[in-house]
């Protein structure tokens, strides 16, 4: 299910000399000048592109604003009243913070998996079918549910108890259920905030393989604290750090590049020091 931009708007964009969206390389382009929580400047000067059909990894020390940036890509931060963004985020060429854009529409097309598993208090089946029903899915819901559970590596464990409450599963199973729920609607972009922190190594591998498989059709952005994971799955890696020099703790993007290059030959001193620390 892809976002249907008003054809008239596309026409206008073309006339205005804006790249038609089929030719865009980036699914999401975020140009963050400043993100505030109330008076607190959480992130500054970070320009980041989430390229189509690729996995972009966000790494960096705790508190540097990875989650904050990720959550502003699908307007999840709108739920926090004191959140304020200066800058722009475009999705397929469309500014998602434009006044005429409904955040609900954005979130239906840019899905999200959270660090804490958060299944709904309903059956396993209904959890996965939730987004399908929301979007009035025309196909066979049961098939789609099974397919999504299989891709999330959970089908074999739950196929005999689809009617059980999703909260009755173990933490790792719940997280895979949440992944199944998020991919069932075929979002254009999938944002994942440390999705594997509740998973054991085997389930982590399943999810990593899923991500690699997903990028054939979708675009993925993932926050991870695991450097090996970033290297295994991310095509592009963005390194964030935190600026404590001015008294506050403001995060910013230090550098971004192809994962191999960033890890083997970082351009910035900050990146080099961080990676040296992580791998020592």
């Amino acid at each position: 299910m892809t976002m249907t931009i008003d054809p008239q708007a596309t026409e206008l964009m073309k006339n205005a000399g804006i790249t038609p969206r089929s030719e865009l390389v980036a699914a999401i382009e975020a140009d963050v000048n400043k993100i505030y929580y109330g008076d607190f400047l959480a992130v500054r000067d970070s320009h980041i592109a989430i390229e189509k059909g690729k996995i972009t990894g966000f790494i960096g020390p705790s508190g540097c604003g990875k989650s904050t940036v990720l959550r502003s890509l699908n307007r999840m931060n709108d739920l926090i009243p004191i959140f304020r963004l200066e800058g722009s985020v475009t999705f397929l060429g469309q500014d998602i913070y434009a006044p005429n854009i409904d955040p609900v529409l954005v979130r239906r097309n840019i899905g999200m998996v959270f660090q804490q598993p958060n299944p709904f208090s309903m059956s396993i089946f209904e959890n996965v079918a939730f987004g399908l029903r929301l979007n009035r899915y025309k196909g066979n819901v049961a098939d789609k549910v099974e397919q999504s559970l299989r891709r999330a590596g959970l089908w074999e464990e739950v196929k005999d108890k689809l009617k059980q409450n999703g909260l009755s599963l173990s933490g790792g199973q719940q997280q895979r259920l949440c992944i199944a729920r998020a991919i069932a609607t075929d979002p254009t972009v999938l944002l994942m905030d440390e999705p594997c922190s509740a998973l054991d190594p085997i389930a982590t591998r399943v999810v990593e393989e899923l991500m690699l498989e997903l990028k054939e059709d979708y675009t993925v952005a993932i926050v991870t604290h695991n450097m090996q994971q970033a290297q295994r799955v991310a095509d592009t890696t963005a390194f964030f750090s935190v600026d404590i020099s001015k008294g506050g703790r403001t995060g910013f993007l230090v550098e971004t590049g192809p994962t191999k290059e960033l890890f083997s030959n970082p351009k910035q001193e900050l990146t080099r020091n961080y990676l040296a620390g992580e791998f020592s």
């Binding site: 699908n74 999840m76 739920l79 609900v104 529409l105 954005v106 979130r107 239906r108 097309n109 899905g111 999200m112 959270f114 804490q116 958060n118 299944p119 709904f120 208090s121 309903m122 939730f130 987004g131 929301l134 979007n135 949440c178 729920r181 998020a182 609607t185």
Partner: peptide, 27 residues
């Protein structure tokens, strides 16, 4: 209702009414 359930509902792209009737009320 835990905050993460609200995040889950809105993260799936529910409107407020949908979040209330499809997720919060059952919860």
């Amino acid at each position: 209702i835990p905050g993460k359930v609200k995040e889950a509902a809105y993260g799936m792209g529910t409107t407020r009414r949908e979040a209330i009737f499809k997720v919060f009320l059952p919860t």
